Computed example of a mutant assay.
Amino acid sequence: MKAMEPRLTRAVVEWTGWGTTPRPARDDARVIARFGGEAGPALAKAARRLEADFSADSAQFRAKHPEIGGDAVDALAWSSAYGR
């Protein structure tokens, strides 16, 4: 089982804009600005992968991705409600 990665959770929240923007942002640049040029691109890519894997069944998603916290799951649910 993967351990929860708080930095990945924060990156997903930042990438989606959850809690700071009125609509989903899906912005790699926000993640890179927060986490730097070395870690930021990989975290943004991971956020995109998680969004692609997200389903409306958050319990199933949480079981599949224990490495992210509840804030990231909430952010992905909010983001998916708006579509692409």
Rank of each mutant, 00 (worst) to 15 (best):
residue 1 M to H: 05
residue 2 K to I: 09
residue 3 A to W: 06
residue 5 E to A: 05
residue 6 P to T: 06
residue 6 P to F: 08
residue 8 L to D: 03
residue 8 L to H: 02
residue 9 T to D: 02
residue 9 T to W: 05
residue 10 R to F: 05
residue 10 R to D: 10
residue 11 A to Q: 03
residue 11 A to N: 01
residue 12 V to T: 05
residue 12 V to I: 13
residue 12 V to K: 10
residue 13 V to E: 03
residue 14 E to S: 05
residue 15 W to Y: 13
residue 15 W to S: 04
residue 16 T to P: 11
residue 17 G to W: 11
residue 17 G to S: 13
residue 17 G to V: 14
residue 17 G to Q: 04
residue 18 W to I: 15
residue 18 W to H: 15
residue 19 G to F: 13
residue 20 T to E: 14
residue 20 T to R: 15
residue 20 T to C: 01
residue 21 T to F: 04
residue 22 P to R: 15
residue 23 R to V: 09
residue 25 A to W: 09
residue 25 A to P: 02
residue 25 A to R: 15
residue 25 A to S: 14
residue 25 A to D: 07
residue 26 R to W: 13
residue 28 D to G: 05
residue 29 A to P: 03
residue 29 A to N: 08
residue 30 R to E: 01
residue 31 V to K: 04
residue 32 I to V: 15
residue 32 I to R: 06
residue 33 A to V: 04
residue 33 A to W: 04
residue 34 R to K: 12
residue 36 G to C: 00
residue 36 G to W: 00
residue 37 G to F: 10
residue 37 G to M: 11
residue 38 E to S: 08
residue 38 E to P: 01
residue 39 A to H: 08
residue 39 A to F: 06
residue 39 A to M: 10
residue 40 G to D: 00
residue 40 G to N: 02
residue 40 G to Y: 04
residue 40 G to S: 08
residue 40 G to K: 12
residue 41 P to D: 04
residue 41 P to L: 06
residue 41 P to C: 07
residue 42 A to R: 11
residue 42 A to C: 01
residue 43 L to Y: 07
residue 43 L to S: 03
residue 43 L to N: 00
residue 44 A to P: 02
residue 44 A to T: 10
residue 44 A to I: 06
residue 45 K to V: 11
residue 45 K to T: 13
residue 45 K to Q: 13
residue 46 A to T: 04
residue 47 A to V: 02
residue 47 A to K: 09
residue 47 A to N: 00
residue 48 R to T: 10
residue 49 R to Q: 14
residue 49 R to I: 14
residue 50 L to G: 12
residue 50 L to F: 13
residue 53 D to S: 14
residue 54 F to Q: 06
residue 55 S to V: 15
residue 55 S to Y: 04
residue 55 S to C: 11
residue 55 S to L: 05
residue 55 S to F: 09
residue 56 A to Y: 13
residue 56 A to W: 14
residue 56 A to S: 15
residue 58 S to L: 07
residue 59 A to F: 04
residue 60 Q to R: 14
residue 60 Q to F: 09
residue 60 Q to I: 12
residue 61 F to T: 12
residue 61 F to M: 12
residue 62 R to L: 00
residue 63 A to W: 06
residue 63 A to I: 03
residue 64 K to G: 03
residue 64 K to E: 03
residue 64 K to M: 01
residue 64 K to P: 01
residue 65 H to Q: 06
residue 65 H to C: 07
residue 65 H to Y: 00
residue 66 P to M: 12
residue 67 E to A: 00
residue 68 I to H: 13
residue 69 G to I: 02
residue 70 G to T: 07
residue 73 V to K: 07
residue 73 V to S: 11
residue 74 D to G: 09
residue 75 A to D: 07
residue 75 A to S: 03
residue 75 A to K: 12
residue 76 L to W: 00
residue 77 A to N: 13
residue 77 A to P: 05
residue 78 W to P: 10
residue 79 S to T: 12
residue 79 S to M: 15
residue 79 S to C: 15
residue 80 S to E: 11
residue 80 S to P: 03
residue 82 Y to P: 08
residue 82 Y to T: 03
residue 83 G to E: 06
residue 84 R to C: 09
residue 84 R to D: 10
